[in-house]
């Protein structure tokens, strides 16, 4: 099967300084791939590079075989990738339903079917559809953010630390939602601070350090690697 996303030797950063020094990774269809690594490893930057938010000076990014290096975010959204930022990822002063509508902004007209799909995935949200997103709990907000990102039927979902600041209970719930989303046919690439839990739940993982690849493999395989456990996971 052809990979959904290929990042090949990507080098770049925000200003003149490079944060990524040749990062490569692959996401296959129906796969949850997680990026872990110590603080400042360039995890979030690698993800933002996919979404056109980083200046890329070298390397290439391919989505479904087409090169998207240097594209603008809205073109990338249209192409089939959605991105959920780590913070401020909902419209706090708009209702849950309006948040979902904004997710489909590029579609001009929104089909009722799309809302149904999201509300089936996140039953909690259906009851809260007219509540302001800012009034929801952290976990529910994360659902709104993911629901918003899924409105346009993307083939790849980018999640930047979706469990940051959430209780273990919610973390498990978010991971379960990720699996459900994957089972609907969406590939997921996510950055995680909680490396142990994330590696345990993902299909494959990449370990990044100082802007380069260090290790890659199946989640459990990485967890069992004593070197990784010592380097990044605090024993």
């Amino acid at each position: 099967m052809n990979p959904v996303l290929v990042m090949h030797q990507v080098r770049g950063g925000y200003g003149d300084a490079d944060i990524l020094h040749g990062v490569s990774l692959t996401v296959n269809p129906k796969e949850i791939v997680v990026i872990v690594g110590p603080n400042g490893a360039g995890k979030s930057t690698a993800m933002k590079a996919v979404f056109g938010l980083v200046k890329i000076r070298d390397g290439a990014i391919l989505f479904e075989g087409e090169e998207i290096t240097g594209w603008k975010p809205d073109a990338i959204v249209r192409r089939g990738i959605s991105y959920v930022p780590q913070v401020k990822n909902v419209f706090a002063e708009m209702t849950v339903h309006e948040n979902l509508e904004m997710g489909a902004f590029l579609a001009k007209s929104v089909k009722a079917e799309a809302f149904e799909r999201i509300y089936t995935l996140f039953p909690d949200l259906k009851a809260k559809r007219n509540a302001l997103a800012g009034s929801l709990s952290g976990g529910q907000r994360q659902m709104v953010a993911m629901g918003r990102a899924l409105m346009l039927n993307p083939r790849l979902l980018l999640l930047d630390e979706p469990t940051a600041g959430l209780s273990p209970k919610y973390m498990e719930q978010i991971f379960q939602i990720c699996r459900d989303v994957r089972d609907t046919g969406v590939a997921i690439l996510l950055v995680e601070q909680h490396a142990k839990q994330a590696l345990a739940f993902c299909d494959r993982g990449y370990v990044l350090a100082t802007g380069s690849n260090r290790h890659e493999g199946a989640g459990q395989e990485l967890l069992n690697d004593p070197e990784i456990a010592q380097m990044f996971l605090g024993g």
Binding site: P73, D74, K88, N89, A92, M94
Partner: peptide
């Protein structure tokens, strides 16, 4: 409400 997110929405 959230200009960055609005831009991400296109």
């Amino acid at each position: 409400d959230n200009p960055e997110l609005a831009r991400l929405c296109g």
